[in-house]
Amino acid sequence: MIERQIELRVNGQSFTILVKPQDLLVDVLRDQLGFTGTKKGCGTGECGACTILLDGKPVNSCLMPALRARNKDIITIEGLGTPEHLHPLQQAFIENAAVQCGFCAPGMLLSAKALLDANSHPTETEIRQAISGNLCRCTGYAKIVQAVKAAAQAMTQGDGNP
C-alpha cells in the first residue's frame, strides 16, 4: 500500500509525514511524532486514554485513520501546557491529587479542557458527563471531578492562563 505524504497540525505546529492508509492517528502521534503523552489502553475506543482534541473536540485517536486528521487542528496533552507553563487544569489535577497512576490523565485532561472551553461554569453532573468516556481505575473519579471544578473556578477568576 502506498504511503502518502500528509501534513498534520499538532499543537500548533505543522508536520509533513508519510502515512499508510491503515495507520491510526494514535500510532502516528506516538511513534512517528513522539507525542507519547497520548496513551493507548484498549484500541477499541472504550477507555479514552488516547483522547485528543480534533478541531477542539475530544475524539478517540485509536479509532481514527491518520489520513482523516489532515487539515484539522490536533491538540495532544503536550499542547495543553508544559511543566514550566501549566494549564490551570493541570495545576488543579496536581493539587487535588486527581492523578494516581496517571495513565488516564492525558485523555482525561483533554476531555475536561473541551468541557471548560464550551462551558466555563459546569455543574458536577456536566463534569461527570464530560469525562464519562475516560476510564480511570485508580481514583474513583472523586478527585478528578474536584480538580475540574477547581480549574473552572481558577479560570473564571482570571488566575489562569488558558
Binding site: 507519547t36 503523552g37 493507548k40 501549566l86 489535577f93 496517571g102 485532561l109
Partner: peptide
C-alpha cells in the same frame, strides 16, 4: 500534610514514561 504526588507534574504533562512508551 496533604502533599500531592511527587511526579504528578510529569503525569499531567504527558512526560511520565510508562512501559508502553
Amino acid at each position: 500534610q496533604r502533599i500531592p504526588r511527587h511526579d504528578a507534574i510529569l503525569q499531567v504533562t504527558g512526560k511520565a514514561e510508562y512501559g508502553i512508551d
